[in-house]
């Protein structure tokens, strides 16, 4: 590999490039060029049609850095991701532990748990919008029956809207976590647990000293992937609240869209897109490194 002749391509290499060409072309035209264009937009003054007008260096960046709303939105993006991923991990782990116990119908239960992940995100968000309806929705009705006398107006108040949105995102993300953790737990050797039982180790000890160390790598990859999906979740927020009320549920990804398509502030949208792009690149590099370190001998 290191000693490939530089002056001339082997027949194999030529063929390989020809086979990859269509994919590379597609990525170049519909992914790389748009990324390049959005970087240009962030460095130019743009008009209401998004056409580049005047090179302004980093003026768009400095202007947005001074805007408290930008920092609020960025901060909320990170908070949104952190809270959602923690809850997904914990609940996912609980479900995985339940499904790891042998009981009749556990295969069926596993199947049912997958449904929120298998379902289409935009459709789920629309269903939840109806569930949350504060007058006719069955959620508040059920909560009342369970003894919560004054359930909140979910999508009307800033804080409750945020809670409502993040819950839907969590709900979508839980099944993936549960499935991956369960797959990990089932790959842990039975002998480890049995010899621990002989030594009189109790259940929590088994979990913390056998299960967790054995599935550490899987937990890390799943958490990383989930952070990314959570950070990128456009559909849930846009469909439930469109970032409202009064911007209380806006995160970077919805803000990019609203700046671009609703307020026609293309340069602002572009700056946020570039910031998001950088954050995602960091995630991507960490993911790629861990993935390959995980014993994949493909390279």
């Amino acid at each position: 590999m290191k000693h490939l002749p530089t002056h001339r391509l082997t027949a194999d290499a030529k063929m390989a490039y020809a086979l990859i060409a269509p994919a590379a072309l597609f990525i170049a035209v519909f992914m790389l060029y748009p990324v390049f264009y959005v970087i240009m937009m962030s460095l130019f003054k743009t008009n209401k049609l998004g056409i580049l007008q005047q090179w302004v260096w980093f003026d768009n960046f400095t202007r947005l850095m001074k805007d408290p709303v930008f920092w609020q939105v960025t901060g909320r993006s990170l908070l949104w991701t952190a809270i959602a991923v923690i809850v997904k991990t914990v609940v996912g782990m609980i479900i995985a532990l339940c499904l790891n116990v042998e009981f009749a119908g556990r295969k069926f239960a596993r199947m049912l748990f997958i449904i929120p992940w298998a379902s289409s995100v935009p459709i789920s968000a629309m269903l939840w919008k109806w569930v949350y309806d504060h007058e006719f929705g069955l959620l508040n009705h059920t909560l009342t029956l369970l003894g919560i006398s004054n359930p909140p107006v979910w999508l009307g108040m800033p804080t409750w809207s945020f809670v409502a949105c993040i819950w839907v995102d969590i709900w979508i993300g839980i099944p993936f976590m549960a499935l991956v953790f369960l797959a990990g737990m089932q790959s842990v050797s039975r002998d480890l647990y049995e010899s621990a039982e002989v030594d009189g180790v109790n259940a929590p000890q088994k979990f913390f000293f056998i299960t967790i160390p054995c599935i550490k790598q899987i937990v890390f990859i799943a958490t990383l992937l989930s952070s990314l999906w959570t950070f990128n979740d456009f559909n849930t927020i846009y469909i439930l609240t469109r970032g409202g009320p009064a911007g209380a549920t806006d995160i970077l990804i919805t803000s990019i869209y609203k700046n671009g398509f609703e307020w026609l502030r293309f340069s602002d949208a572009a700056v946020m897109a570039v910031v998001t792009f950088i954050i995602l690149m960091v995630f991507a590099l960490v993911y790629a490194r861990t993935y390959f370190r995980g014993g994949d001998d493909a390279l």
Binding site: M31, P34, V38, F261, F283, A288
Partner: peptide, 21 residues
């Protein structure tokens, strides 16, 4: 590496420039 990294991509990043295209 690119294949793996691109899976992290969000279409929202390019949605405004894709619209122009």
């Amino acid at each position: 590496y690119s294949l793996l990294a691109m899976q992290m991509f969000s279409p929202v990043i390019i949605i405004i420039s894709l619209f122009r295209i």
